[in-house]
Design a protein around this nucleic acid. Structure first.
Lengths: 193, 193
DNA sequence: CGCGACGTTGATTTGCCTCAACGATTGTGG
DNA sequence: CCACAATCGTTGAGGCAAATCAACGTCGCG
């Protein structure tokens, strides 16, 4: 169960087996059914979740009442509302499972105490955040600079397994376009070949 | 000279005067003329720069040969190619002064050694990164969700002093639109009043 | 002065949205 | 087991925001 997360952690900064044991003891192991909401607007986000198995989306509802999907998370990813969690203030977002999902959760207090007990981990989480920042940055640049079709091509290249698991309309939302447009884009790509 | 940066640092996490002194000793104080390139594609980004006075832009050149501006930085901001700096790998970006600019630079080695000497700072920089992440996140959401006119209005509200210091075409690039469009948007806003 | 950088304005095109209708698939209750 | 609704993807028609291409005015500066 901890095999993957340990590899994930170790890849950020060196950490001993003892320290990993302590880390494990602060995690909560949970299972959620498909379509379970882990976070709703108005709540403070009480966790950072590492996905052991399954698929989760993070989104908000815009002024038209439409879902705007900000992130998908599958195996070996973290998901949380970082702003809400780290400042312990109410979120605007939903976090919801798309499949039956197994996670390891860490709450705010446990994370604080971990940093007290294992200062090494302060570095690990800084580097994880750094990585998250780079991911967000490159996604942002891609969105600003590229038309919908190349964004879609980039998406399926980067996350080839997600389209098989997630309805097309939600991918459209993630890409910032309508489902109709995505459908036409796919048709256009096929025709080109 | 260190007054503002100390306030900036202290606002992230508590830190003693002695520790600040050590921090100062690792910074390089530099002045650059207008239009100086601090980073070019192919180079590894060797610094994180805190702007004491002046104005800097970060951008890349797209496939059409156009500048795409990713960030402006003025007084009391940091600028760097975080991905390149933190992994010491070549950058794709330019960082260039728009005005004569005074900065405090920290290089990779100094930052590493600072973390060794003052573990406290590991937290400071983690929290600074957290803040940067939130800023980027909200900019991303704003860009995806809003049309060009509201993005422009948001921009001048958030950074009222930048339009006076930066050519309009560069602001257009930052907003992800053409200079012509920005010109029309401004005309449209004036007409509405 | 003349040149280049910058901003504006006009005409046209285009990428994506909106609204609407229509199959295909899945799930559900009678 | 079938009937029906709900969900999902596709396709078409029309519209709009922003891009493109092009011309022109202004300003600052070597």
């Amino acid at each position: 169960m901890f095999q993957e997360i340990d590899r994930h952690i170790s890849s950020c900064a060196p950490i001993s087996q003892d320290e990993l044991e302590i880390f494990h003891s602060r995690l909560k192991h949970k299972f959620f059914k498909r379509k379970t909401q882990l976070l709703q607007p108005g709540e403070v986000c009480k966790f950072e979740a590492y996905i052991v198995k399954g698929c989760v989306k993070k989104y908000y509802i815009d002024q038209n009442g439409d879902e705007v999907i900000l992130q998908f998370a599958v195996e070996d990813w973290w998901i949380s509302d970082i702003g809400s969690f780290s400042e312990q203030k109410p979120s605007n977002l939903f976090i919801e499972t798309l499949e039956d999902t197994e996670v390891l959760l860490i709450d705010f207090e446990s994370k604080q105490s971990l940093f007290r007990d294992i200062p090494q981990l302060e570095r690990v989480f800084r580097l994880m955040l750094l990585r998250a920042y780079s991911v967000l940055e490159s996604r942002f640049y891609a969105t600003v600079a590229h038309p919908a079709e190349s964004r879609y091509l980039q998406f399926i290249e980067k996350y080839p397994n997600i389209p098989q698991r997630v309805p097309q309309q939600q991918i459209a939302s993630y890409l910032g376009i309508t489902p109709e447009s995505l459908s036409r884009i796919k048709a256009h790509i096929i025709k080109k070949k």
